[in-house]
Write a protein that binds this DNA or RNA. Structure first.
Lengths: 338, 338
DNA sequence: TTGAAAGCGCTAACAT
DNA sequence: ATGTTAGCGCTTTCAA
């Protein structure tokens, strides 16, 4: 491939201009479409840049326009392994959507209370906007970003009052899952195990669960709802209690809880779904590799990523933006609840 | 936080110079450490930039130095879910190491034969170098990158003759695993199931396996080695044959094969480790969540990432670079082989 | 419709 | 040890 001029360097605007005997300005205008250029000249220019294999030096362009064509993506580095596929899919989707619109994607890794990478990138001015794939509880990321007047979209719940965000219908999803299970499992004793109730997502799920029970005229069974469950020991006790309390079905708050629950039930000699039905959120592939495959509510990371890019670029390019986008869910009914 | 000057914009070099009544050049020199500046002036400058909260506009710096302080990381977008934690950990490690050395990380997603994102980034000149986290079989990425004279490090095996790379000791690892199992399992009939033999990694493992058998005076058991295994159907037949052929132990080529094998053995009523021992590579968390937890050979993605950054920055900053770095492995002995 | 020239914020060669 | 000045490759006034 001929990627260089006769001088041995990459072609640049001036080379094209000289080759055509016109000014850089005209070439620039022909390429960008801003300003008036005759159709004939435009064609000559476009042909020439193709032939010379010209492509703009993006750094120079950035410098001149004061625009980087980069977006920063904040990824939690301390995510647990079950979450990795979610964040990776989300990131890849973001990167793909950005590329289609001539933007690049800068990774910003953050650990629990370490926002130093984020701060570095904000200081450097290397991005035009930021996507947060998991906002912290205290809204400190949004806070920091807004101090730099940097446009920002958060994926998932955000505690910041004026944050632009894209989220999933957790409450509705959990509601529908519960309703489905109620109809299918002789209507009683559906247990719920959720992790950290500081997370909005878990509160939304709890609400959905309660609402589904109320809608069908069921009382919320106090004995079979476990909130804020944390650690394997505690989980084991919960599972034991649920089986003793006549539960016929368990909804697990995440894949981790679910995998442990499945293992514990196996070792207790309880068969799924005969003795206990089980469902989960997230749907890592291990849920369908399990025997039997496990029913799950799935939120598509690629859609969340795509929507966040769409919103952010709308903001950057001055189009009207909704303050919030809510995406739906998929219910994957499998043998674990049949 | 006071991140702006009285003019309402971010402080820049000239503001600092004026505030101190000296030239931009001196300020620049005081900051970079290049060229001579008196200790007194340097102190004044450093104090002043702290007070004014000055930080350089990296785009302008890039433009001027013709250096971006970005490195591009090629991530396969078509990886299977078991691999996601590996690539994510690797990427996060790279991003962290880069940040520590004032570089940023640009994501380059690639799908099987679609190198368009890579091409885009190379054209744009937005990076100083590239890390490939999974080179393609045909070396096409390295090829493309070298056409642009872009420094490059590949993680894992690379078919390109002059590629700089960082890899794991697959052969040695598999050899040690095999030896360990031979000593522990009454020395016979250790089955091996590997996927696509086009991948160098699988060939290396096979070599390690064979060598370990030879070293201990065992013949390579033809009936219990399955190469190029692909798909669940085929895997099921393999597992059945292995159990019939008197195998006492199976080494699985990846977590996926392993999970399926475990499920199949369970459904066949074979107990692990009583009826069959089992070991795997990679060690996603599901291997230790399984009951019993599964012995695995682990290659630390964070170390591979860190080493690749170290090599690439050595190249970029003109230090001597080894052509290849080989990292070790961890053997995690668990109940599945006891 | 086109061109000339200034300017984006920094670095570095050259001068003092 | 410090200052002057040119220049990096684009976009964008302003002028013709």
């Amino acid at each position: 491939m001929d990627i260089i001029t006769s001088n041995g360097r990459k072609a640049q605007l001036d080379d094209v201009a000289k080759a055509l005997g016109i000014s850089k300005t005209t070439v620039s205008r022909a390429i960008s479409g801003k300003g008036r250029v005759s159709a004939a000249t435009r064609k000559r220019v476009l042909d020439c840049i193709k032939e010379m294999n010209y492509s703009p030096n993006m750094i120079a362009k950035s410098f001149s326009e004061n625009k980087t064509y980069n977006i920063g993506v904040v990824i939690p580095m301390d995510n647990i392994e079950t979450e990795a596929p979610f964040f990776q899919t989300c990131l890849m989707s973001i990167s793909k959507c950005c590329a289609l619109r001539s933007y690049d994607t800068l990774v910003i890794g953050t650990e629990k209370n370490d926002l130093s990478q984020l701060r570095r990138v904000l200081e450097s001015g290397k991005t035009d906007g930021i996507i947060i794939t998991r906002p912290l509880q205290d809204g400190s990321m949004e806070q920091l970003i807004s101090e730099y007047n940097m446009p920002c979209v958060a994926v998932g719940q955000s505690t910041s009052p004026d944050a632009v965000l894209v989220d999933s219908a957790h409450k509705e999803g959990c509601g529908e899952l519960t309703s489905y299970l109620l109809m299918n499992n002789s209507a009683q004793n559906i247990g719920l195990i959720l992790g950290d109730m500081g997370q909005t997502v878990n509160r939304s799920r709890y609400e959905g669960y309660v609402k589904a029970l109320e809608n069908t005229g069921n009382a919320v069974p106090e004995k079979t709802v476990y909130l804020g469950v944390n650690g394997e020991m505690q989980l084991r006790r919960v599972i034991e209690e649920l089986t003793q309390n006549g539960c016929t079905c368990i909804i697990c708050g995440d894949d981790m809880i679910c995998m442990h629950a499945v293992n514990m039930l196996n070792s207790m000699g309880k068969a799924i779904p005969r003795d206990m039905r089980i469902a989960s959120f997230y749907n890592s592939m291990y849920l369908d590799m399990n025997s039997p495959p496990i029913t799950a509510l799935r939120f598509r990371a690629e859609d969340l990523g795509a929507a966040s890019v769409s919103m952010l670029l709308d903001m950057l390019e001055g189009r009207n933006t909704e303050r919030e986008t809510v995406l739906g869910f998929e219910m994957l009914i499998r043998r674990s609840t049949m």
